[in-house]
Design a protein around this nucleic acid. Structure first.
Lengths: 200, 200, 200, 200
DNA sequence: AATGAATGAGACTTCATTCAT
DNA sequence: TATGAATGAAGTCTCATTCAT
């Protein structure tokens, strides 16, 4: 994530990053297929040739957004999951973190969960594989907590993970800045609901 | 939902329904914008003229999918919510029902939550208003349960509803038929997690 | 060859044929790659959409030109080669015929022998296979004449065929209508040179 | 012809020659218009700036290939045609030589006879004028032989020259290295056919 | 002598939609 | 009720060329 995660896109960013930032914003607003390459480069203040100098195709832009986001997510999760504390503590920290990150990079997430199906077969597989790794690290935390006796064992761990990520990924579908609740508060409520549902 | 909810699309369906069924399947598979009208009519075994005889535009197909789905959902919810039983009982029944319906009409839901942003402004508003009504009826159940003392009051009811629907709407993103768990089992686990998270 | 073989292209031709006729003319004049689809449809008085209604791609136009020409050539050759007369007589008749046809469909031939390499791999193979059949039928005539004792046997028959077709295919590279010699005269001279070179 | 006439292109060639050699190979393989400047410079291991340092345009590459080839051909022909021997002897020598040269510089010839029409008007004229001079020197040999009484006079000399060069120029269209016959043998057969056809 | 980012024009193609039949 | 030829606008992408370094 080289570009600023939200708000104005500084004109000083290197062109590839500026293009990605602009594209992310527009894809989130209007959808990938309703955003033309022309609109993106206009917004970035360059020509199409410049974009195709850095990105092989419009799909590449989408993939690169995914790739950066997945890299960010994965590294944050691993840092937390491999850190100190009980499984429950680490799971809570990870869950809060993924929610906060989701709010911070709301456009990126919105694009991600709305447009994966538009990627080419190969890339879709690549993204899915990265996602799976992420999912599994998270699931391991749940299973750890189940072995510790903190979490109920009736619910299969991977169902619980689907359950939680499912709702995290939908945040962009309803959350609008400026609402009654701050994002941090929403994160807390979500994590409470999730962990409460999981605990004995 | 005039068309068969899943599997083979009978050639005996009235043409408008057959077109909707085919379109739903294809939009779910490849996305709305990557599916051409030509492909839809080919798959339905008719020509474009026939489609434009029944639907004013490609957007109309999408809208009609939404419309039918929302009608179905709303009527089911109202029947359950206005029925007998404690708030908690009715909430559980409604939650199970929406999950089962989601599995049954998986394609329709997938299209719905992936393509709303592609509708025209007007129709998007219309859909959103219908959704809101649905959401609010569900929230009323949660609030009822909170007043009853069954559910925790720390979590705002509408956050809880977003939480639950969020994950329901993502089911199409990960669920694939033929997995280890039956859909009914998944529904139960999801509802358990949700209600457990909500209860005192 | 549905279109008129030379001169003005009647506006009454069915659109696919008119497009082919126009394309043939322009490819011969400026080359396949220097002729844009836009120029073709302008010259045919229609829009690009109309062209893509009948031809899947610009390459298809090229292939169709080839295909029709090969069909024409092959059927003419077979009629002559399988007819009555000595091998030498039939070879002469076939040689005169292919030359006359070459002059008549000069544009088609010009395009053919200049642009085969621009076809996709598959289509190039298809064309080559059709050509080979044609070549072999012609070679059989030469061999027949060698067995009859009319033609010298020092020269391998397939070399003789390459020799003759080679020069036939180059006619478009130098012949311009309105020169000193009529096309029929040129044909006779060419056939004389060829048969004289072949005979004992 | 500064570059090696066939096979591997030595990396030790001066850059302009290496670029020409690479371009010739690629133009012969894929056609002038289907070969991008980027591909040429990649294959030559340099960047576009380097190419544009030596050649003003992509067209210049093509012209330079023509120019070198024509220079080579012309000087060889003149040396032979102005040498000792009867007209028939010199014509045979010249014919054998042009065939051998064609095999040696097969790529160059292939490009030449496939892409002349892609040159700018001016350059096309220049090339054509050079070709004409070449053609005429050859024709003079034929006429000399006709006056000597060796060659038949029924066939106009310039038709005979078109006839011969036509087939020479098509060699690249069918000959593939590694065939049954060596190139020298093919040359002999071709010259035999030609001279036999011409002689009384 | 050489780089490589950037341009700008134009290429091929797709597609929702219309309309005469 | 249905066809399918034709439109027109827009889309993605390519590429020869330039220019500051």
């Amino acid at each position: 994530m080289a570009q600023a995660p939200a708000g104005r896109i500084p004109g000083t960013l290197p062109l590839p990053d500026r293009l990605l930032a602009v594209a992310t914003r527009m894809f989130a607003e209007k959808g990938f297929e309703s955003t033309s390459v022309q609109e993106i480069v206009n917004a970035a203040g360059v020509t199409k040739g410049a974009m195709y100098h850095y990105f092989g195709s419009k799909d590449d832009l989408l993939y690169e957004i995914y790739h950066r986001l997945l890299g960010l997510q994965t590294s944050r999760l691993e840092q937390i999951a491999d850190g100190p504390g009980t499984a429950a503590e680490r799971l809570r920290a990870a869950a809060v973190d993924v929610l906060n990150t989701s709010f911070l990079y709301l456009d990126d997430f919105t694009v991600f969960f709305r447009s994966t199906h538009l990627l080419s077969r190969d890339r879709r597989e690549a993204v899915r594989a990265e996602r799976r790794r992420y999912h599994e690290r998270f699931r391991a935390l749940v299973e750890e907590g189940q072995r510790e006796g903190t979490f109920r064992t009736e619910t299969p761990a991977d169902i619980a993970v689907h359950f939680f990520f499912g709702t995290v990924h939908q945040i962009g579908a309803w959350y609008r800045p400026g609402g009654r609740l701050k994002t941090a508060a929403i994160s807390e409520h979500y994590v409470d609901l999730f962990l409460h549902g999981l605990e004995n």
